[in-house]
Design a binder for these strands. Structure first.
Lengths: 345, 345
DNA sequence: TTGAAAGCGCTAACAC
DNA sequence: GTGTTAGCGCTTTCAA
C-alpha cells in the first residue's frame, strides 16, 4: 500500500484534499469531476492525477444535498420470495437505471402492518416511491398519496385516490379463463383464493362470480399463494364436487396438480386446472399448465414511466391498465362425462 | 387541502420553516425531532404541532451528510429473474432492516462487463456493498476490495483478495451428490454446466471430476441456467450414453426431466436426474427431484453480519463457508440393468 | 433549557 | 479560465 492508499483507508478524501494537493481551487476540481465547464488541459490533468493518487470519490450525499435530489427511488415489495415481484423489479430496475436512478428495495414479508412505516422511511430517503401490490388500508394509501413526491401504485387500483397506478386487467383475465373453461363444457368449478388483502385476488373473484351469468358456477375456496397451499387444498377441493379449479397463481395450481395426481385423479381427463402468471415452469410441467400471462416486465417499465412523468410534473395520467393473455395448455380439457370426476356420489 | 398542505405540495418544508412558525430556534426543532436532549414540554408540543401542520419530514440527505453515513447498503445481483438471488436478498434485507439499513439493489442482467461500473456507483451512494455471485474478473474484484468501505462477496471465493466472503461449500455438495449416484450404482453420468463465469459451477465441476477416483466418470455438457436450456440439452445428453445427469440447478434439471419424458425416457427407471438449490417446486414435480439445498436465507444474514462487523472495523473474519444438504427424492434410482438406458447401441 | 454559529462535502453564482 | 463565497438542510459544540 502506498502512503496515499493508506491515508484513503483511514479517512475519506474530500474535494478539498484534492484541491490542496493539486494546488487549485475546489471549484476547479469540481469542474474537472463534472466535466461540464471548460478547464485548462494542464490543470485538468494535474487534478485527475491527484484524484487517482488519493483515490478520491465524490460524496453522493453532498451532491444530493446541493442538487435537491438523491437519484434513488424506493420500492415496497410484499414478498421477495414470490417470483412475481422480482420480475416486476427487474423491468423497473432497468428502466430506472437508464435514467440514472437506483432502487432502494424494502420487503415487508407480507406483513401489511409494516407497509406504512417502511413506505414513509423509504420516501424520506428517496425521490419517489413505487408500491407493488400494497396490502395497506385505503386510508394509509391516501396518506401516502398526499405526500408531495412521485408515487406509483402497481397491481392495485383504488378509486378516489390521486395516485398514479399501473395494473393488469385482472377482471378481464379471469373472465377469459372462465370463458375458456365454460367453452370446454365446465359448469361448476372452484376458485382457490389468494392472500386476503390482495387486490388481484379480489378482482379475479369478482370476475369469476360474474361468470354465473354464462352458466358457470364458481365456488370459492380459501387457499393461499404457494405450492403447499395448493397441495393441501386438494382434499377440500375434491369435496366440492367440481370439474375444474382456477388457482390464484401457478404455484398453487402446480401444487394442486401434484396433489390430484397423488390422489389418483388424472389431469386433465378427470379434472382441469389453471393458474395465473405463466411462470416459466408452467410450460414444462406434466401436463403443461393452462395459465394467464401477465406482462411483468411492462409493469415495471410502465411504473418507471409514471414516476418520471410525475417528476417532470406532467399532468396526472390515467391509470395504465395492461392486458394479459390466456395461454391454453394441456391441463385443461373437457370435463369427464359424468357430472363429477371425483368419484363422490 | 389546507393552506399548509398546499404549501407542502409546492416546496419541501425545512427545519427553518418549522422553527420560524413555532417561534423557536432550529436547534430546538432538531432536538424535538431527535428526542435525545430534553426540551421544555410546552415548546416541544408547539414544535410537534407545527411539524404536523406543515407536514415537515426531515431530509435524510442532510442528516446523512452530517452523520457521515447514509444508512444504505448496495447489493449487486447478476439476475433478479433467477430465484436464488431474491431468496438471498430476502434474508439480507431482513437483517439489514433490523439494524436500520436499507438496500440499494442493482441488477446487471448477467452482463458481467456492467458489474464494475455499477458496483462503483453503488459504493459511491451507500455505506457498503454486497456482491452476489460476482462474475467480474479477479482484477476488478481486487480493485473493489481496495476501496475503504465494507464489502462482502457472496457465493464466490477468491483466494488472495482481502475481502470477506460468504459461500456454500459447493465442492462438498457436488461430491455428496456424486456419492449418492455412485452409491446407487451409476458409473458414467453427465454434468450440465451452468453460466461460464459462475464460481459455483466451477467448484461443482471440480468436485465431480474428482469423483473419478471413486469410479464415477462425469462428462461435462455446456448447458446454461434455465428450463429451456435443460429441455434442449436432452438430445445431446442422450448421445452421451450416460445413466444419470446432474444439472447446474433445479430449473435445468426440471427442463431435462420434461425433455426426457417427452422423448419417452422414464425417470428414474431409465435415467436419473438431480439438481441444485432445492427450489420449492422440486418437492412437487413428477417424480420429485433429488436436489441439494443451499441455505439461502443464511447466506443473506451472514453477509449482513460481515458488513456490520466491518463497519465496526472488527478484525477481518475468515470466509464463512455454509454447508448444504442433499435431499434425495424420486428422480434418482439405480441405473437400468443394461449399461445404457438411452436405447442406443 | 435554549440559541447562535460552525461545518458536513459539494455545486453554482458571481467576480476577477 | 479560475477562484472566492454563499449556501443545500441538518446536527452539534459552545455560550448564555
Amino acid at each position: 500500500l502506498s502512503n496515499a492508499e493508506r491515508a484513503a483507508a483511514v479517512a475519506d478524501i474530500t474535494i478539498r484534499d484534492v484541491a490542496r494537493k493539486a494546488e487549485v481551487s475546489v471549484t476547479t476540481v469540481s469542474r474537472v469531476m463534472n466535466g461540464n465547464t471548460r478547464v485548462n488541459a494542464e490543470l485538468a490533468r494535474r487534478v485527475r492525477r491527484v484524484v487517482e493518487e488519493l483515490g478520491y470519490r465524490p460524496s453522493a450525499t453532498a451532491r444530493s444535498l446541493v442538487a435537491g435530489r438523491t437519484g434513488l427511488i424506493g420500492v415496497l415489495v410484499p414478498d421477495l420470495a414470490n417470483p412475481f415481484y422480482p420480475s416486476v423489479l427487474k423491468g423497473l430496475s432497468f428502466a430506472a437505471e437508464e435514467s440514472g436512478y437506483s432502487l432502494v428495495v424494502a420487503s415487508t414479508g407480507e406483513q401489511y402492518q409494516h407497509e406504512m412505516p417502511v413506505a414513509l422511511r423509504l420516501l424520506a430517503q428517496t425521490d419517489g416511491l413505487v408500491l407493488l401490490s400494497p396490502r395497506m388500508s385505503t386510508e394509509a394509501l391516501q396518506e401516502i398519496a398526499a405526500i408531495p413526491r412521485p408515487v406509483v401504485c402497481v397491481n392495485r387500483f383504488q378509486a378516489g385516490i390521486a395516485m398514479r397506478c399501473v395494473t393488469v386487467d385482472e377482471y378481464d383475465a379471469a373472465l377469459s379463463l372462465a370463458g375458456h373453461l365454460r367453452g370446454l363444457g365446465h359448469k361448476r368449478i372452484a376458485y382457490l383464493r389468494g392472500p386476503a388483502r390482495s387486490w388481484s385476488d379480489g378482482e379475479r373473484w369478482r370476475a369469476l362470480r360474474a361468470a354465473a351469468a354464462f352458466g358457470l358456477e364458481v365456488l370459492p375456496l380459501d387457499c393461499g399463494a404457494d405450492l403447499e397451499n395448493g397441495f393441501k387444498a386438494v382434499d377440500r377441493l375434491i369435496d366440492l364436487d367440481v370439474t375444474a379449479a382456477v388457482a390464484f397463481n401457478d404455484y398453487v395450481a402446480l401444487g394442486v396438480m401434484s396433489g390430484l395426481q397423488a390422489a389418483g385423479v388424472r389431469v386433465p381427463q378427470d379434472f382441469s386446472v389453471a393458474g395465473f402468471d405463466d411462470i416459466p415452469f408452467a410450460a414444462y410441467s406434466v401436463p403443461p399448465l393452462t395459465s394467464v400471462r401477465r406482462p411483468v416486465g411492462d409493469l415495471g417499465r410502465e411504473a418507471w414511466r409514471k414516476i418520471e412523468a410525475e417528476m417532470l410534473s406532467e399532468p396526472l395520467l390515467d391509470t395504465a391498465v395492461l392486458s394479459s393473455t390466456i395461454v391454453p395448455r394441456g391441463s385443461t380439457a373437457e370435463p369427464p362425462r359424468r357430472s363429477s370426476s371425483t368419484g363422490r356420489p
